[in-house]
Simulated assay, not measured.
Amino acid sequence: MKIGITGDTHGSLQAIRKIVSTTPPVELWLHTGDHAADANLLHNLTGIKTVRVRGNCDWQEQDALVDEYLVLENFKVWLTHGHKYIQWNTQADLGYWAKELDQDIVIFGHTHIPMCEYYGDALLINPGSPARPRGGSKPSFAVLTLQKGEAPQVEFFEL
């Protein structure tokens, strides 16, 4: 299963269009929040199911949840913006909660910096931001490939 991951799009139609024109075929989109309404646009442009969460800048997106829990190809996947859980150290904070919540993969945003690292047994993935990158990173999104019984694979795409 191929899953497109984006977030921290902050209302940038240009960023969404670049993502759509750059993305290889995916079966599902995950949006990590901060302009969760962009997930609707992503769905409308691609026709692909899109799951979104509410970020710290999503005051008007009351219908989006802060956390979504999915089971994909036998992996427990926690989608969150991260602002409720990240305090001092992204890895340690989200890794702690992944263990507490018994999740295999944590997909989050908030920092606008792409990353893919294990913390203990949990894989932490941040697609970065296609609209407002930080930390010297370039505009980006990610594609996660999951296959039951195989290690997850993550590929980052720069825009």
Rank of each mutant, 00 (worst) to 15 (best):
L28A: 08
W29G: 10
W29Q: 09
W29K: 06
L30I: 00
H31T: 04
D38F: 04
A39P: 00
L41M: 14
L42S: 11
L42P: 11
H43M: 09
L45R: 01
L45Q: 13
G47I: 04
R52D: 01
C57N: 14
D58V: 08
Q60T: 11
Q62T: 15
A64W: 05
A64E: 10
E73T: 00
H83I: 00
H83V: 03
K84V: 00
Y85W: 11
Q87L: 12
Q87Y: 14
Q91I: 04
L94G: 14
L94N: 10
G95Q: 12
A98T: 08
L101I: 00
D102M: 09
D104N: 13
I105G: 07
F108G: 03
H110E: 13
T111A: 12
I113W: 00
M115E: 04
M115I: 04
E117C: 10
A122N: 12
L123F: 05
N126Q: 08
P127E: 07
P127W: 07
G128H: 11
P130Y: 01
R132K: 13
P133Q: 04
P133K: 01
R134L: 14
G135R: 02
G136R: 07
G136F: 04
G136N: 08
S140D: 01
V143I: 14
Q147H: 11
E150Q: 13
